[in-house]
Write a protein that binds this DNA or RNA. Structure first.
Length: 269
DNA sequence: ATGACAACCTGTGGGC
DNA sequence: TGCCCACAGGTTGTCA
């Protein structure tokens, strides 16, 4: 489910509801996430006042006056505001109960997500992340420099979190199509001007997906429970075998690093 | 350093 | 209808 636009949508959805609220308790029904939830989480967050919510890569950072709750949604996670008394459903693993009879409820069937309590400003998982894709430091020149003498494919290159964060499989496919670049091309052999186009495409596709409230595949819902509407604008992802929206050629599907790649062999070189 | 791949899980959809 | 397999939005850790 969640790629960067979905995580951003979640942040924006929950922020107004939790700002300035106090955490009165934590209910952990299942602590076995990608990493087990540390007992320090409950001790640290109980009684804390929420200052705000921000996002770094695909991590949601809920800052309080006592420390920071760091949440990752993995492949199937979601975080929603609910009435605290709403009955918990299967896979509703954690409730952060607030002082207004509501709670922030974490749901994650596959348990690839994670929840950490940070009493300090930093965390090892945040240490080696590349730039934010929507920041000005993420530029064509930057990608060009980083890619020189690298043989890895351009798709795997832009999906590497040490290069740039937040470009997941859906949007990598979409951005490469928009930039007209073949996903299997060696990243070290993409010209500077084409990296400019690629960076523009990544920023465009991510920002318009955020504007649409994310891409809803299966059952993604934002922090307020609303679905996203970007799926109807996908150009290649999930459209293998169907005609390219530009030249009508049947879109091709290949596999890269175990992930599905869909592209147009005519429009992308 | 780089790159390929297994691993962590459950749910779902397609093929038979 | 039902069973089994392959695959799904992510990321880390390991090994060559």
């Amino acid at each position: 489910m969640p790629e960067l636009p979905e995580v951003e949508t979640t942040c924006r959805g929950i922020a107004p509801h939790i700002a300035d609220r106090k955490v009165v308790s934590v209910i952990i029904r299942e602590s076995r996430l990608r990493w087990p939830i540390s007992p320090e989480l409950e001790a640290g967050i109980t009684g804390a006042r929420v200052l705000g919510v921000r996002r770094r890569a695909k991590y949601i950072l809920m800052e309080t006056d006592c420390g920071t709750l760091m949440v990752h949604l993995g492949m199937s996670g979601s975080l929603r505001i609910m009435p605290a008394e709403a009955p918990a459903l299967f896979h509703d693993h954690v409730d952060i109960v607030l002082d207004d009879l509501r709670c922030l409820r974490y749901h994650d069937p596959r348990r690839f997500g994670s929840m950490h309590w940070l009493s300090e400003a930093s965390h090892p998982l945040l240490d080696h992340l590349g730039p934010e894709p929507l920041s000005t430091s993420f530029s064509g020149a930057y990608l060009y420099e980083r890619s020189r003498r690298r043989s890895t494919s351009v798709k795997q290159f832009i999906m590497d979190g040490k290069v740039v964060v937040g470009v997941g499989n859906i949007y990598a496919n979409e951005a490469l199509f928009l930039a007209g670049i073949h996903p299997k091309r060696a990243s070290g052999r993409v010209a500077a001007a084409r990296y400019e186009a690629l960076v523009g495409a990544i920023k465009d596709v991510l920002s318009s997906a955020i504007e649409q409230g994310g891409t809803t595949l299966r059952d993604f819902v934002g922090g307020d429970g609303q679905p996203g509407y970007f799926a109807q604008q996908l150009r290649v992802y999930g459209r293998q075998g169907r005609p390219c929206r530009v030249c009508q050629t049947a879109l091709k599907e290949v596999r890269q690093g175990g992930r599905s790649t869909v592209f147009c062999r005519v429009c992308q070189r």
